[in-house]
């Protein structure tokens, strides 16, 4: 019986072991080839990923990046109580405005009812969660009634958005009312 077989009784076992070894060796070789060079440089991650993250383009600058080209606004903005308010919060990121030292787009300016909505994001007294130490709040429309102006007035009709008390104080100075601080 045994003599009829062409193959050795262990040939299939040896072939399988060979196949498994080849798969293993090829696997190790392929891994060495496709693994990014910086992988494992600092830990179990691609070391170059850190530089990739650092190189992410900045879309926001700081208020200084805006005010360097807008000196008039700069003077008003920095003198008023809104000096801590970010230009880019209301107008959008500087990257949408300037590219490679050139103006590419005009940034939007809030107008009309949008202004009121924007002001009330911070100053609306009805939202009670706001700490008084942080911000001065007003109720609408009581504030307008109190000041004897029409209730459809927009905030920026009395308040310069960059220096909210500038016009108020100027007006008070003109009519001789005692000057309010800031």
């Amino acid at each position: 019986m045994q003599h009829e077989y062409k193959s050795n009784y262990l040939s299939h076992v040896i072939k399988i072991i060979l196949v498994l070894v080849v798969v293993g060796v090829v696997g190790v070789a392929v891994r060495a080839m496709v693994l990014p060079k910086s992988f494992g440089e600092f830990g179990h991650y691609r070391g170059d990923a850190i530089q990739d993250e650092i190189n992410r383009p900045n879309r926001h600058g700081t208020n200084a990046s805006c005010l360097v080209c807008h000196p008039y606004i700069r003077e008003m903005h920095l003198a008023g109580v809104h000096s801590t308010v970010s230009c880019e919060f209301c107008h959008g990121p500087v990257a949408d405005h300037v590219k490679n030292g050139k103006v590419t787009n005009k940034l939007p300016k809030k107008e009309g009812k949008e202004i009121k909505r924007l002001c009330l994001r911070c100053h609306n007294q009805i939202i009670r969660a706001r700490p008084k130490e942080s911000i001065k709040m007003i109720s609408m429309p009581q504030h307008l009634e109190q000041k004897h102006v029409r209730t459809d007035h927009n905030c920026n009709q009395c308040h310069n958005v960059h220096a909210p008390l500038m016009w108020v104080n100027e007006a008070k100075a003109m009519v001789g009312v005692g000057e309010e601080t800031k």
């Binding site: 019986m1 045994q2 193959s7 050795n8 009784y9 040939s11 299939h12 072939k15 399988i16």
Partner: peptide, 9 residues
Amino acid sequence: IGSDNVSEK
């Protein structure tokens, strides 16, 4: 696996 050996062994 290219083998025809089904001997007892």
